[in-house]
């Protein structure tokens, strides 16, 4: 069931997921959503009872937009700290904020930023690390990623003993969840772009504007909509790496199917899952922690695809 409507306030709204949009051609002005389109989008959200998330560009919006934006309960995803509920940043160095932070990074920057991330964990209430090059991970990268997660886990455990509850999506989400919790693109969440058309998620819009799933005038028209649901995802419905973003756009890019994740996506998610398991077990050695959460089981695989014979 639809629950969320993401409204991109501009064609240049900040990307907060794995896709890095191509920069606009030189000299092309940004494309702000027309005020009337914004109003219609908000009306659509109200009628469909959707929670709205605005995604901002990196400039100040004209004054008349503020009143319209505030006409419905919402959250703000911004490329600047001020006024954001979620701040999307391209730099992790010396970061400090009292809102959730999304740091988009490629693997190399991630591997080079261990100290900065550890420092950030003490200075932000929640850090979401979003990898922009998942599909390029090699076996060597997986090993580096495993080591890095272990280093973060050690630090988070230390913070916990000091009474600081720090959140890092890659490690702490899995401990908190009781079922899969992913972006829900095309299922629970859709995106409205400045052109008045709906998309499965912002990445589908940034990649190909013709790839829409309806518009404000005619309503939604999601073809094969069942394929965005977990029940129709043959690998994911058997998986318990519940923190995995299960990025629909990346699925389609790598496997050509929205319901099938790549090998790299699955392995990364399971390295995170296993590191979460270790972290949970280690924290529990010091006392009661998340008593309502079940133990994360030990498993002997990193890609559930390799176990398909047990469920096919």
């Amino acid at each position: 069931m639809l629950q969320y409507l993401i409204i991109l306030l501009d064609k240049e709204s900040v990307s907060f997921c794995g896709l890095t949009p191509s920069p606009s051609p030189k000299g092309e002005r940004s494309c702000l959503i027309p005020l009337d389109t914004l109003k219609q989008g908000i009306r659509f959200g109200m009628i469909e009872n959707l929670m709205i998330q605005y995604v901002y560009p990196d400039y100040e919006l004209p004054a008349e937009y503020s009143k319209v934006i505030e006409s419905i309960d919402h959250s703000k995803i911004k490329p600047m700290k001020d006024g954001a509920d979620v701040w999307v940043t391209g730099s992790i160095k010396d970061i400090k904020a009292d809102v959730s932070v999304v740091w988009r990074t490629d693997k190399q920057s991630l591997f080079n930023s261990e100290a900065d991330i550890i420092s950030a964990l003490e200075n932000v209430p929640r850090l979401n690390v979003v990898l922009t090059d998942v599909e390029t991970f090699t076996d060597e990268d997986f090993e580096n990623y495993r080591s890095l997660l272990n280093a973060f886990a050690e630090h988070i455990e230390k913070l916990y003993l000091e009474g600081i509850s720090s959140q890092l999506n890659l490690l702490t989400d899995r401990m908190m969840f009781s079922k899969i919790n992913n972006c829900g693109a095309g299922d629970t969440t859709i995106t409205l772009a400045p052109n008045g058309k709906f998309y499965v998620c912002p990445a589908f819009y940034y990649e190909d504007e013709t790839d829409s799933i309806g518009d404000l005038e005619h309503g939604l028209d999601i073809k094969n909509k069942q394929l965005y649901k977990l029940d129709y995802a043959p690998i994911c419905r058997h998986c318990d790496a519940w923190q995995c973003k299960r990025c629909i756009w990346l699925n389609r890019k790598t496997t050509l199917e929205v319901n099938t994740p790549s090998h790299e996506q699955c392995v990364l998610a399971h390295l995170e899952r296993n590191a979460s398991r270790e972290l949970l077990n280690n924290i529990r050695k010091h006392g009661t922690f998340l008593p309502e959460q079940e133990e994360i089981k030990e498993i002997d695989y990193l890609d559930p695809f390799d176990k398909r014979n047990t469920w096919l």
């Binding site: 043959p234 496997t255 050509l256 319901n259 790549s262 090998h263 695809f305 398909r308 096919l312």
Partner: peptide, 15 residues
């Protein structure tokens, strides 16, 4: 490209 092969090898009747 093994990623492109994955959807084929996960096909079942009901899905």
């Amino acid at each position: 490209n093994k990623n492109k092969l994955r959807p084929f090898l996960c096909l079942d009747s009901r899905t």
